[in-house]
Design a protein around this nucleic acid. Sequence first.
DNA 1: TGTATTTAATTTGTCGACAAGAAATATGCA
DNA 2: TGCATATTTCTTGTCGACAAATTAAATACA
Lengths: 233, 233
Amino acid sequence: MDHETSLRNERKRGSGVKVVYDILRDEILDLELPPGSPIDEVQLSERFGMSRTPIREALVRLAGEGLIDTLPNRSTMVSQIDFLNMHSYFDALVLMYRVTTQLAAKYHRPEDLEAVRALQIEFANAVEAQDALAMISTNAALHLAIAEAGRNPYFTSLFLRLLNEGRRLLRLYYQSYNDQLPRRFVEEHDEIIAAIEARNTELAERLAREHAEQIVSQIQKLLMREERLDVSL
Amino acid sequence: MDHETSLRNERKRGSGVKVVYDILRDEILDLELPPGSPIDEVQLSERFGMSRTPIREALVRLAGEGLIDTLPNRSTMVSQIDFLNMHSYFDALVLMYRVTTQLAAKYHRPEDLEAVRALQIEFANAVEAQDALAMISTNAALHLAIAEAGRNPYFTSLFLRLLNEGRRLLRLYYQSYNDQLPRRFVEEHDEIIAAIEARNTELAERLAREHAEQIVSQIQKLLMREERLDVSL
DNA sequence: TGTATTTAATTTGTCGACAAGAAATATGCA
DNA sequence: TGCATATTTCTTGTCGACAAATTAAATACA
């Protein structure tokens, strides 16, 4: 009996949905469940050792965030990454980088910066260790912490969705993170954090914009390369 | 037997959740279910003539959009309107007005403008008839149609959420929409639509910003008045 | 009478089962 | 053999029931 099903009996009432939701969400974002993977309710209920009801509730929440697609009366599967409308994604991502960083410079409190700095150290360590997966997730966590310091839940929730989507995207290409580029991100983060601390909203916004555009152009390069590969097949 | 329960037998499989979701959503946004109202699952299942399972699924979706709050193992109720952090709301609303209108000027197609114009006529009619509820909902529909012409689903979905929240807010104060102000909105809409059609992104963005700030300052005036009333009690 | 502890009632979370719809398979017919 | 139709299998949507958690009521005790 594996760990998940062994929790069957000791599970607190009401905790089942959250467990299933968190695990599936991570598996989708880490591409352990790649886009298009079929989601079978009975299979999941066997795996997690619970009935289909809490499984379904977790699936409804995942569908609400666009992580899975549900065809009525038919199969449900992990949602595809939309490569055709990628520019919409980049537009939204850059704008949210800018606005959340700007607001962080305006509204942050000292304790916010502590959390941000801790994550920046984690990110630097991941870069040093060349651990691409850790880089991806700590980078998202860092920028989310900055967004939270900006104290606008509307922007923060959209940004979270975009960062998650990006986590999936970057996971596709994490091999190509290798040489000098990550270190540059570490330096850019330091500059952004300094601007936030100095409450220099204009500078923070500009740095965030440049940082975001760096990332976007990097992803676009990877996409281009991949598209060329596709064509050449 | 009322209309809703009479549909019990003729209901298509899978349609139940959507029906409950749509009806509850509208009732919440129209303040027929005011903030704080208790949501009882068995009561709803009796009202809609179906079991608790589809009701619960609809509630999970509503909770995902922040329209209801659920305390584990305890009651669930219509979420409060957060008057304390209203500036976050206004910041997000103004930015989404600006960016969606700008993108509409850039990416719209002829058929988009037809839909927008139809809604603008509806809005003008509502203003003429001094029908505040129709004004609120057609205004939201109009700006959502503009956002859809901009073709960025990330912005559109956040904007939808904000417009819904605003629908609830405005519904609180719809009495005070009376004299010359609404007509000004009609004119501003016309100018915005013209700028979009001319593909003048800068002008469209500026007009949308001014329009949004008009609306925000109007709401703020109403809030101020209300706050003063509260204090004087 | 007031407070603490038990008991009952209410409401949510979970379960197992059944039925409807769609896909896969099998059958009938030219 | 090729195609249309019927049957079976599989998955989802819905149901009614039960159990756990919480709240309200009732009882006991100082």
